[in-house]
Amino acid sequence: MNRPTRAQSHRAHPAFWAFVAHRASGLALALFLPVHFWALGQAIHGEAALESFLAWTRNPIAKAAETILVLLLAIHLTGGLRILALEFLPWSPRQKTAIAGSAGAAVLIGLLFLLNLGAGA
């Protein structure tokens, strides 16, 4: 098979990088899901078990991971809504605006989370 041996500049446009963000965030979320469900499943063993898990998440590393997860979820949400609009609504010539808008909204959600995370800590 024939691949460009130089810089793959055919990818140098926002829609491709929006795809990369969507795929990477989707993959990370899919891998995180079983862990998330398993952790919430601690509630089966009663309030104490859930609380001991939550206590563990109060360290800075867990909080950083939480923030990244919220950001990934926001990226996948806003990017996904953009893709649904692209596929199921009449074509809009403003694709780059849509990509910028979805990225901006995701960052905003991430910041809002950080702000609230700091509010009670």
Binding site: H10, H13, F16, L86, E87, W91
Partner: peptide, 22 residues
């Protein structure tokens, strides 16, 4: 198709296969 839109970006005739595939 994952709507990378590279087809639309590079088509010398300025066609939009991404929209056609949608």
């Amino acid at each position: 198709c994952h709507s990378h839109q590279s087809c639309r970006e590079h088509c010398p005739k300025n066609l939009n296969p991404t929209a056609s595939i949608a």
